[in-house]
């Protein structure tokens, strides 16, 4: 379920949002705290919907919350010209 090619800045964004707790973020997004922990650690890649919800909570563009590195994506590299 992990994706090495997707990183995130949720921990920093939480800190900048008045040290929002993982529980508070989980409640706003509609997932469990364990899911937020897994996403933060990069162990779980959320659905696009949840990713957008997290970005909406921080009022940030999704690219600021999640960063994609094609160099670490094996599928992308496999199909690269």
């Amino acid at each position: 379920m992990a994706s090495k090619s997707i990183a995130n800045t949720i921990r920093t964004l939480r800190f900048n949002a008045g040290e929002m707790t993982q529980s508070q973020l989980a409640e706003r997004v509609g997932v469990t705290r364990q899911t937020i922990i897994s996403i933060e650690k990069g162990k779980y890649a959320p659905s696009l919907e949840v990713a957008f919800r997290i970005a909406a909570v921080f009022d940030a563009p999704i690219g600021e919350v999640f960063q994609y590195d094609p160099a670490l994506d094996r599928v992308f590299q496999k199909h690269a010209p």
Partner: peptide, 11 residues
């Protein structure tokens, strides 16, 4: 009381 989420469903 917390509802299951997408990670729970996937697991």
């Amino acid at each position: 009381n917390a509802a299951e989420d997408e990670r729970d469903h996937r697991i």
